[in-house]
Design a protein around this nucleic acid. Sequence first.
RNA 1: GGGCCUGUAGCUCAAUGGUCAGAGCAGGGCGCUCAUAACGCCUUGGUUGGGGGUUCAAGUCCCUCCGGGCCUACCA
Length: 568
Amino acid sequence: MARHLITSALPYINGIKHLGNLVGSQLPADLYARYLRGRGHEVMFICATDEHGTPAELAAAKTGEPVAEYCRRMHAEQSKLAEGFGLSFDHYGRSSSPQNHRLTQHFAGRLDAAGLIREVSEKQVYSNEDGRFLPDRYIEGTCPNCGYEKARGDQCENCTKQLDPTDLIDPRSAISGSTDLEVRETKHLFLRQSAMRDRIAEWIDSKTDWPVLTTSIAKKWLFDGDGLQDRGITRDLDWGVPVQKGDQAWPGMEGKVFYVWFDAPIEYIGATAEWAEAQGGDWERWWRTDKGAEDVTYTQFMGKDNVPFHTLGFPVTIMGSGEPWKLVDYIKSFNYLTYDGGQFSTSQGRGVFMDDALDLLPADYWRWWLLSHAPESGDSEFTWENFQQSVNKDLADVLGNFVSRVTKFCRSKFGEAVPDGAAWGDAERELASAITRRVRAYEAQMDRMEIRKAAAELRAIWVLGNEYLQAAAPWATFKEDPDRAAMQVRLGLNLIGLYAVLSAPFLPFTAARLREAMNSSAAWPDDVDAALTALPPGHAFTVPDNLFAKITDDQRDEWSERFSGVRG
RNA sequence: GGGCCUGUAGCUCAAUGGUCAGAGCAGGGCGCUCAUAACGCCUUGGUUGGGGGUUCAAGUCCCUCCGGGCCUACCA
């Protein structure tokens, strides 16, 4: 039994996430966590909401709530949706937790002691009317290059030229529209990532088995241009972790908070500490290699936009602390899911969001489609037609109908108990060995986190059941040799029990229904032959209702129309 | 501008430089009747974006052109 620490990139608190966000981190992380638990390993699966930063403050201002209250409410909402999708976090924390405050301040203190923090005085735009400093992209104005009137302070979207906010003609606040702006001097802390460049580069170089997507992004940031740059880790905001060195004040930094990208990854640790406090466990044995974490395998899941923070910033924090914190062992990164030819868009309400999805269909439909089409090698596209076809075929026809035909046939000929009868023949032994090969391949793909390939193997295992049934034809056998038909049906029923276990990482809700209907165990089929005889003659079961209703053409058309843009 | 990824069957995707480039879906034919008009078997379909090169051998390596996507450090 191994110990696995799994973290999913933290979803930002600002609003409900869409399916692209879901498939990029939380869902595959859940798949892996469920699989490893199924194999009997000890798993700590951590996620949390990322609650700090300007967008959270603005979103709260918009609803008129204090930001802390807004975050509390949105956290509850995201938790509920996570539960609805069956995301099996051991703890779903909050980056605003006291645990994270303490840890973030602790790391900052350690980094400062190691000489990895420097103070920088810089000029930033302050909006008098908004009463806050404005991040570059919250300043709008006319582009000096092309004359576009809605250029942002960091870049003009029209001509793609990189800008400095002070370049803008007629600058104004993107928040209030106020032109009462001034440039003020402000002091910030910078993390000296440049000083750690060689160490990080060496570390990345040693990760030859990581996805190319992960290492290529890391190397780009390490070596492009002048190489890895130092980054500001503080902001002039109210909402966040106050800047301190451990529990000591940080002279000159009063009223400032740490920047989200600094405190957010630390919340992986913070959330584990939250878990410990809530459950009464020991979080350090997951995170401190001097306190029991030396045998932990740590895997992170994230979308490609998060890779720089996890390959550079967070490791600099961890390594730079000089303390024996657990460093990530494998970073599984994903491309984007696109929606019907374009991007999912939160602002335009384009695409399907987590709450919409659960209103439409049970979670397992979404889980199956998203995971079996995970954007691993490139961006992948969601279309309603593809979704309808895949789900109807894979879930309703291949898996659902298999369960239906076996259980209903048994009920009509033998009743709702596993029938006694003849012993296995060649066909059954061949099936068992074919399934064994497939199960071992499935495990291998899951171990490698090859998600689409794992889904294909699982589907192939379902197909084997239909092939067997077709060849064995118990409905025909029954007429001349009921004893043999009973054996064939018994094997079919046992296949359902096996499918429940194997499918659980992808389809946890369906798997639970199957286990309940079959009264079968959740034990992983290390020995497939044994698993296929686990339900003995006389074992009672019930015929489940059809597992998956098909998506009709009318539904598909209606949904396609409804989610094309402008969310109501 | 620079960098990275990507282009393979109608669609979605596979293929450590090594048999005839494979699956699933869709299409066509046949079979079955237990089952959600489901299942099974067979089958059509590719000049691997174009061109050039290296090699005994290229989807795979190199060059070039064309198309798509992403990143480029103050959104997170």
